[in-house]
Computed example of a mutant assay.
Amino acid sequence: MTSTRIVALGHHQPERVLTNDDLAAMVDTSDAWIRQRTGIATRRIARDDESVADMATAAAGKALAAAGLAPADIDLVVVATSSAIDRSPSTAARVAARLGAAAPASYDLNNACAGFTTALAAADHSLRAGAARHALVIGAEKMSDLTDWTDRSTCVLLGDGAGAAVLSAVADGSTGPGGLQGVGPVVWGSDPTRADAVRLTGAWQPRFAQDGQAVFRWATSTLAPIAEEACRRAGVAVADLGGIVTHQANLRIIESVVRQLGATEAVVAKDVVDSGNTSAASVPLAFSKLVERGDLTPGAPVLLLGFGGGLSWAGQVVSCP
């Protein structure tokens, strides 16, 4: 048997910054209104000719370089996305081709905002089973393509970007600097009776819509016990967490979950302030930024928790690369 470990991360964001004041010139809103309800100050918006695959490839290339691996070393590519336009070939196949990966298994996974942590678990299971040695797991979204720019309740939320992780198989029992065995067991599930609370519906031009209050109530009442269970399965006390990276949906949700956990010593990702809600990209994007800035100690246990449309969730504790 083998274990797995995230050995490197990378991220990419478009150049264009869309501020709250910019949005106030487009719809009936204000910087104060947006900050009070969401915590968001800015978000990044991709160019018309900048695709999900473009952003995913850029993030993956940075992660590969940080890992010290060649594209030929990668034998599994998984892209979590709900905004890619093409159904086939998959975004993962496009990324593999652009990177020059030899003959990897490749597929896209759509679990909305829980996509990256779900994809990470799927890749972890594949590596543990011996089906691959090194995997690229990517979350990439161009949510601006799905935004109704006349709806002030949703257009203020969304942004574009990508984050990637290189996941490698290691000998079973091998631990990182912090003593954690790489990627911990996943806690995942869904409440399909509430699936319509977050929606991307429509044949050719889907538009993002949600019941914001319902999602807020669900998240603030449901997620803390899921996070605690992920810690328990990994054998890590909440008090010993070095970092917490949840889906960057809303600053009030993030702060509520962290407060309920009582994780007073953990570094908490709050990239939502600068990047908005980037759906499946938000967890790896925020995680990669924390690592790049040196805010997390290598080997420290970090809780990852994705949640959103479905209503779905997936979370695990990982050793910080």
Rank of each mutant, 00 (worst) to 15 (best):
G315N: 02
V238Q: 01
H125Q: 14
L290A: 09
E50Q: 14
P104D: 12
G10D: 10
I244M: 07
S319A: 15
S282G: 02
R98C: 06
A300S: 15
G243F: 10
R35K: 11
V78L: 14
T57I: 07
A46R: 05
A25G: 09
A239R: 10
T222Y: 01
R207K: 15
V27K: 05
L109A: 04
S90N: 02
L303Q: 04
R199W: 00
S106L: 00
P284R: 09
A32V: 08
T150H: 11
R259W: 07
C155K: 09
N110C: 11
V7G: 09
L223P: 08
R207P: 11
Q213C: 00
T222A: 12
A67R: 05
L127F: 00
G235E: 04
N20P: 05
G310W: 08
A286D: 11
A114P: 05
A72W: 05
P301F: 06
D151G: 07
D22K: 08
L120D: 08
V283H: 09
L18S: 00
T246F: 02
F287E: 01
A214G: 15
A164T: 07
L18I: 10
L9H: 11
D196C: 00
W149D: 11
H134V: 08
G309E: 08
R43E: 08
S106T: 10
G212V: 12
G310V: 08
I74E: 01
G184A: 02
S144T: 13
V268D: 02
S256F: 01
T19R: 13
A58E: 12
T222G: 01
G276K: 11
A72F: 10
D86S: 06
D145M: 10
R94S: 14
A121M: 06
A65S: 13
D75K: 06
A280K: 05
N277D: 13
A59I: 03
S190T: 15
K270H: 13
S30G: 06
T201R: 13
V258T: 09
T297R: 15
V291R: 06
R217T: 15
A96V: 09
V187H: 03
G243K: 12
W313F: 14
A263P: 00
Q213F: 01
G308H: 09
S106E: 03
A165S: 11
G115H: 03
P71K: 14
V78Q: 00
T81Y: 05
D196Y: 01
P206Q: 03
L9A: 13
S30D: 03
L69E: 03
A224K: 01
A102Y: 01
F116H: 09
D148M: 01
G189W: 04
K270M: 09
R133F: 00
A214P: 12
V137H: 01
E229A: 14
T147D: 13
S319K: 14
D172Y: 09
L261F: 05
V186F: 00
T220E: 02
A66I: 08
V170T: 15
T264G: 08
S174A: 15
A96M: 12
S88D: 07
L251T: 08
A129Y: 02
S256D: 07
Q205P: 02
E15S: 02
A281T: 04
G115V: 10
G299S: 06
D28F: 12
A112C: 08
D21H: 15
D22Q: 14
D21Q: 15
R44M: 01
A103H: 14
V137A: 00
